[in-house]
């Protein structure tokens, strides 16, 4: 069994659904029509370009270009994780990029080689989409963890200073803030795993079922992916939170709250 192909005419028919949304927006005076059209056009352009690039990459015959793409994806995810936060600290960006790259690529390599047994290890048809799924989730976890840890240092600096003033090490004084940040960063993926298959069919499983894979095999792949994602989220969140926690102290383990810069409005909750 193979996937039924979608032609250009089929896409135009699907676009009619977006046009119907736009018409409803105009009728209700929501002022969303223009944004909806722009978003739909971006979807078409971005995904077609991605399709073309992936088609080209899948045809390549060596690991160098694939590895470069994997590294670029990871580094960009590290950049995006920091960009999403409302607080920054100097040195965080390279730290986030390094941790994100290391954690995601390690998990990817383990998954591809030890679990799936892909040959060659860099096979782009597996490596690129799986890393994409890992990074998409790790990005959320890491940025949540970062936001929580920097907000924690900002808000609880008096408490941290009291602990330092009584002889706590940097790690002892920041223990509560770090734990809370790691918990906040990893809770979404833990919840996703707990609810997997109950509320919706996860994306990868859906894709495999649509492409004709037996549902049980698709389920096994989905479990594999969720485990990879959970591991990368945990590794990435712990790593980046610890990097941030290191950067807000100086070499004499003094808390330096002035190093935390606010760059955007505080989030609710």
């Amino acid at each position: 069994m193979t996937t039924l192909p979608i032609s250009w005419i089929d896409l135009v028919l699907a676009g009619a659904l977006v046009l119907a949304n736009g018409a409803a927006s105009v009728w209700l005076g929501l002022g969303l029509g223009r944004r909806l059209v722009v978003a739909a056009v971006r979807t078409v352009v971005q995904l077609l370009v991605l399709g073309l690039v992936l088609h080209w990459v899948f045809e390549t015959d060596g690991p160098v270009f694939v590895v470069l793409i994997l590294l670029a994806m990871s580094v960009l995810a590290g950049f995006e994780a920091v960009r999403r936060t409302t607080r920054r600290v100097r040195g965080l960006l390279p730290g986030s990029m390094a941790v994100m790259t290391l954690s995601s690529i390690l998990v990817l390599l383990y998954g591809l080689r030890a679990v799936v047994g892909v040959e060659p290890w860099w096979a782009p048809r597996y490596a690129i989409p799986i890393l994409g799924m890992i990074l998409g989730n790790a990005l959320n976890g890491v940025s949540l963890g970062l936001e929580t840890v920097l907000e924690g240092f900002d808000r609880e600096r008096r408490k941290i200073e009291v602990l330092l003033a009584h002889g706590a090490t940097r790690s002892e004084a920041s223990r509560d803030v770090v734990r809370r940040a790691v918990r906040t960063g990893t809770i979404p993926i833990v919840n996703s795993m707990a609810a997997a298959g109950l509320v919706s069919i996860p994306g990868m499983m859906t894709g495999q079922i649509l492409s004709g894979e037996p549902p049980l095999s698709a389920a096994r792949y989905q479990i594999f992916i969720l485990f990879c994602i959970a591991s990368a989220v945990a590794l990435g969140t712990v790593g980046v939170v610890l990097v941030a926690a290191r950067l807000v102290f100086d070499e004499r383990e003094r808390l330096r709250p002035e190093r935390i810069l606010r760059v955007g409005p505080e989030r609710d909750g």
Binding site: R158, K159, E161, V162, L163, L164, A165, H166, G167, A168, T169, E172, R252, E253, R254
Partner: peptide
């Protein structure tokens, strides 16, 4: 070490906080 120093020379803030 910083923690060793601060264990022996303890600073008490004017406004205290809850630990």
């Amino acid at each position: 070490a910083p923690c060793e120093w601060r264990r022996q020379v303890v600073y008490v803030h004017q406004e205290s906080v809850r630990l």
